[in-house]
């Protein structure tokens, strides 16, 4: 019995790492550009469709498609910030929200028109393989997916920690005026940040197809999931996003066994409400 629980928890944690990577994309964008990307899930669904197409047409592994998909999403995010979102930066929150919601609607509709309402999946040669570690059984796909998520997140951490561009982006996030004063090209860095955020969720999307099938209406649910994770971990905190992903992965897995699977997202939202009330800055967030 303990082994069953351990298996469920581990599989939840592995999924949680992918959620975390996706939420990282939301967090990076909010932390620097101060835009809440309400089209987050919809963009991720686009990445999932793109990966599915590539996998099924070229017979590649999703993880090999990942760099291409991430690059496409990077360009999309960069252009989005440069030509659309930049123009609403001075507007009040609700107008920005509305533009992003309109974008989300448009994207979902576009996926529906292009790909149709059917569910599309990929077939992996190692789809049913698993590793046995003592009493534990680990799905091979989940292990690969989680490892890929960790690698991408690690690269991103390194980029923001050590590269000059990464530091410049963090400077923009810390102090917009200060960044302007020292001569940083803030507009370009914002576009770059949005691109990186989009890249993150592109990578998450490419990995996600290994775990679930794609259909056009998944968007809002992933947007909400990413919100929950990011607020849990702390808006703008990168490590917080990964931690939040793990917590949600665990809690979904636990709620699935302890209550019933249909209540698992209620569990996440309850967690979110508690966090907003007792620690609104999130687990690892700094007080605003």
């Amino acid at each position: 019995m303990p082994a069953t629980y351990a298996n469920i928890l581990i599989s939840g944690a592995l999924a949680g790492l992918i959620y975390g990577l996706s939420a990282l994309g939301l967090s990076v964008i909010f932390g620097v550009v101060r835009i809440v990307n309400f089209a987050h899930g919809e963009m991720m669904v686009g990445a999932m469709f793109l990966t599915t197409l590539m996998v099924n047409a070229l017979g590649l592994d999703p993880l090999l498609c990942l760099p291409v998909v991430a690059a496409v999403l990077f360009v999309f995010g960069y252009l989005l910030q440069r030509f659309l979102i930049e123009r609403v930066a001075h507007l009040p929150d609700h107008m920005q929200f509305l533009l992003m919601a309109a974008l989300a609607t448009t994207l979902t509709a576009a996926w529906l028109m292009i790909f149709g309402p059917e569910t599309r999946g990929v077939r992996l040669s190692y789809g049913y393989d698993s590793y046995e570690v003592g009493p534990l059984i680990l799905d091979k796909t989940r292990v690969f997916a989680a490892a890929a998520a960790l690698v991408v997140a690690g690269l991103l951490f390194a980029f923001f920690r050590w590269s000059a561009t990464g530091k410049a982006i963090r400077a923009c996030g810390d102090n917009h005026t200060g960044a302007l004063v020292v001569g940083l090209d803030v507009r370009k860095l914002y576009a770059l940040t949005f691109g990186i955020g989009a890249m993150c969720l592109g990578a998450a999307g490419a990995i996600m197809v290994m775990l679930i099938d794609t259909q056009p209406y998944l968007g809002p649910q992933y947007t909400l999931l990413a919100f929950v994770i990011v607020i849990l971990g702390g808006l703008g905190s990168m490590a917080g996003a990964m931690l939040g992903g793990l917590v949600i992965g665990f809690s979904e897995a636990l709620a699935g066994v302890l209550f019933q699977p249909s209540l698992k997202s209620a569990f996440s939202f309850a967690l979110l409400i508690v966090i907003l009330l007792v620690r609104p800055q999130g687990l690892l967030g700094k007080r605003a």
Binding site: L84, L98, L99, A101, A102, L103, A104, T105, T106, L107, T108, A109, A110, W111, L112, M113, G116, P117, P216
Partner: peptide
Amino acid sequence: LPGVKQFFWGVVVA
């Protein structure tokens, strides 16, 4: 074509 209405709706609002 399912979705075409929502598509334009989003465009109009944006």
